[in-house]
């Protein structure tokens, strides 16, 4: 087995707050190969953004801290490290774009200058070279009149345009991995599609890997090769997009799918929310974090946290139902509880 491009293992992140210590990420493992797309899915507060931000060294410390785990880029540790063999990790090896492009760009610096900055810092470009390259990058992300636009400020751009500019900035140093943290959440639906197309095209052109963080299963289906479903600071299901969508093996994934609007006329009226709310991460439950909301929950679920059990080839689920000794194992999961069996 070759070394993956990025391998994250057993990552734990905590935050100290007024109310106590929040265990935001509680042991996350995943890996991604070059040129592939991994989607990390989950509802707000499940720890998906914290995971990648901790990896990139972007969480403020204190109050945050990484208590355990590691992240390796081509086998080399990047946690707490700023450069690998003279090449900067952040901005050069790994590019990143964020959810809200409006607030993620410096309001008092021109777009062109902001795109040019990594080139000047990491590549030693001159001011003029970097500016010219910034215009080319803007052109590449399909912003019309790029040279005029480069001189403008963020408040003169629309949300979609800003996200394009963010992408231009993130790919300016030709990173091997691009992390997109909810890149389309703040945008109109039509713009969302354009941004996703752009990302896909850029990925094809440059061969970079993409980690896509989202809560939108539609985006996942459209973009991802692999999917990691996160709940309460842990990955609860991991597998190829087909496995996770068509052979969902964790009740939470099933619940997520049911809560998603669909075009299927038969399912139009079946938009079902997941009852209850995620557990308090100040003091996570002893057993499975989803047990309290899970229609299938069993005695063991309340007593012990589930491990990741293999469901199929490269398909894992953190659910007691998938335990080798579980009587429910071969049966496919349905929305309902025990009554349906």
């Amino acid at each position: 087995m070759t070394t993956p491009l990025l391998q994250v293992s057993d990552l734990h992140v905590e935050f100290d707050t007024y109310g106590g210590t929040v265990k935001a990420v509680r042991g996350v493992d995943f890996s991604i190969e070059a040129g592939r797309t991994l989607a990390i899915v989950g509802e707000s507060g499940c720890g998906k953004s914290v995971t990648v931000q901790a990896m990139m060294g972007l969480i403020p410390m204190p109050p945050g801290r990484i208590t355990r785990g590691e992240a390796r880029l081509r086998g080399e540790n990047i946690l707490g490290v700023s450069s690998l063999g003279g090449r900067e990790v952040r901005g050069a090896e790994i590019g990143m774009i964020f959810q809200d492009p409006m607030s993620s760009l410096n309001p008092t610096m021109s777009i062109g200058d902001q795109i040019a900055e990594p080139l000047i810092v990491h590549r030693g470009y001159s001011q003029a070279q970097a500016r010219a390259r910034a215009v080319a990058l803007l052109d590449m992300v399909r912003i019309p009149e790029a040279s005029r636009r480069a001189r403008q400020y963020p408040f003169e751009f629309s949300g979609g345009m800003l996200q394009r500019a963010m992408i231009a900035m993130a790919i300016s140093c030709k990173p091997t991995l691009l992390i997109a943290d909810e890149p389309t959440t703040a945008l109109d639906v039509t713009i969302q599609a354009q941004i996703l197309d752009l990302l896909r095209d850029l990925q094809n052109e440059t061969g970079m890997a993409l980690i896509l963080i989202t809560h939108d299963l539609g985006v996942v289906a459209r973009m991802a090769d692999e999917v990691a479903v996160m709940y309460a600071g842990r990955i609860v299901e991991y597998g190829s997009v087909e496995d996770v969508f068509y052979r969902s093996s964790h009740p939470y994934t099933v619940g997520l799918k049911a809560a998603m609007p669909s075009n299927d006329p038969e399912r139009q009226h079946e938009l079902r929310p997941i009852e209850g709310s995620p557990p308090d991460l100040f003091s996570p439950p002893v057993g499975c974090a989803y047990a309290a909301r899970c229609p299938h929950s069993m005695q063991i679920c309340r007593q012990q946290p589930a491990g990741l059990f293999g469901v199929g080839e490269a398909h894992l689920a953190r659910c007691w139902l998938q335990h080798p000794a579980s009587p429910h194992r071969p049966a496919g999961l349905t929305l309902g509880g025990h009554g349906h069996e």
Binding site: H296, S297, M298, I300
Partner: peptide, 19 residues
Amino acid sequence: LQPQDFAPALALEDAHGLM
């Protein structure tokens, strides 16, 4: 693990009680 571990849990008594 024993078979009774896989018995259904009691009703959703604490789905909201966790808050």
